[in-house]
Design a protein around this nucleic acid. Structure first.
Lengths: 262, 262
DNA sequence: GAGGCATACTCGTATAGACGAGTGGGCAAG
DNA sequence: CTTGCCCACTCGTCTATACGAGTATGCCTC
């Protein structure tokens, strides 16, 4: 068994006020912050840490759990514990739905990812009519049924976002919006073609820990929150024509907005 | 020892593929979701769950740890484990910095909280000159020194937000901006009085788990992420006149933005 | 050389036991 | 009645042990 690299980790004080597993977590955290353990590199194994600190394995695992829930490290069964690499971040600009970006043949996600040098994918495509939840219904002006478009976005094979668009059925039925591929410019282009000129979008941003289902769908390591974004699109007559409910891996995104000072 | 309320929790299958502690976590999660355990109410104690499921205490604690890191429950030493109440949420509208909101004598935070029926407080006031970090420096156009204004916001005694404003020293020195209380309308009003008419703000929004320091400062339960918001204020000449770096308890906020469709 | 297997190392799950420390209620002494 | 103590109950920390399961490596066989 390889020893812990000397000088990187010190000793613990069992008589200290601070719990031993917290002291170990502190030392590992500091070593990571200082770059003693680099991004993506392997930490000493549990057995090595047990040896080094002279504590039981559960104590070591406890300290590892602390850092996992902080999102600093992630354990991989059979391989080891690694410093979590910071994934490339996708920046969402506040003008991303501007009309001038809708001319292209490809969706905004694809265009943007290509430009950033990432390999984009979209899967889990499902388009179906359903009864809206109370919340969605209220946002859309209480339609009896809605068209729901579900899809998952991936970058370089990693799922980063899961989104569901809801549209009142009378706007969507019989148009390309009700088909898996809505065509160039996406559903917003189709809505405008149908005479629903878009006026503005309202976005609500929340952050929270993922449900187990969300964690699975986005393959999230523990300690990674999600950004929950609900966007409502309004046409020039003030009618809500679409609600998009999106859950994003928080470590893959930064949202950018511009606010007026007037 | 009180038994677990009958019918709420079933049994576990030790031969199942799914780990026992996950099965227990699943059952507790479902019971909470279904409202069998209400917000703020006490879950069965560890000892009771040990008895009910016929497993060891560490297994029960493990399952409790799962739900804690999901933000669903929080344990209180000596009292029990409780369903985490969802605190009242503060909504930040995208027009919150509009000029018309700066007429009042009180700060936006105070006015808003009063209107919502909460008791607002501001503490940790610190105003001092310092050398900017590389990031802040870049955003402000590389000033040698900046004025930093630190403060923490509380609602009904609960800390919800910690913010630091940075301003180039030449804009702030010798004005009320350099004093703890910048006067009615806040520092933006003072900047405009000094001839720096504000044009717009850029906001960057991220979500992540808190550092230990942040968790302490905001008294965050485990499983509560933070929203990290960096706002840059620009005057009509395009100069960055302030950067505000804010860390918010994610369970206390929802951010609202309006995006143009043009 | 290629394939497959054994093995060592990794983390995951679970048990049993012990003591510490925070909380709150009840009881006894004043 | 009030005060203060004790105790029961709660979660927190830690040890020691065992076995399971995923991964990688190297050797052995073909």
């Amino acid at each position: 068994m390889a020893p812990v690299p000397s000088g990187v980790l010190g000793a613990v004080d069992p008589t200290s006020d601070r719990a031993v597993f917290r002291q170990i977590a502190d030392q590992l955290r500091e070593a990571i912050d200082r770059g003693r353990f680099k991004e993506g590199s392997k930490l000493p194994s549990e057995a090595e840490l047990v040896e080094h600190f002279g504590v039981s394995r559960m104590t070591v695992r406890n300290s590892i759990g602390v850092l996992q829930s902080e999102g600093l490290i992630s354990a991989e069964h059979g391989k080891g514990v690694f410093v979590r690499p910071r994934p490339p971040v996708r920046r969402l600009a506040s003008d991303r739905f501007a009309r001038r970006h809708r001319d292209q043949g490809k969706s905004a996600f694809i265009v943007e990812a290509d430009a950033a040098g990432s390999r984009p994918e979209v899967d889990s495509l499902e388009v179906k009519e359903e009864k809206p939840s109370r919340d969605i219904s209220a946002r859309l002006g209480s339609p009896r049924k809605v068209l729901a478009r579900r899809r998952r976005y991936l970058l370089d094979g990693r799922p980063v976002e899961f989104a569901v668009s809801y549209l009142p059925l009378d706007l969507a039925r019989g148009t390309r919006i009700a088909e898996p591929n809505p065509g160039p410019g996406g559903i917003y282009a189709r809505l405008e073609e149908a005479g629903h000129r878009l006026d503005h979008f309202d976005e609500e941003v929340r952050a929270r820990m993922p449900s187990p289902g969300e964690a699975k769908m986005l393959r999230l390591a523990s300690g990674v929150p999600v950004i929950h974004l609900v966007r409502t699109a309004y046409d020039t007559e003030g009618r809500a024509v679409e609600v998009c409910d999106t859950v994003m891996a928080a470590d893959a995104y930064v949202l950018a907005y511009q606010l007026p000072a007037t």
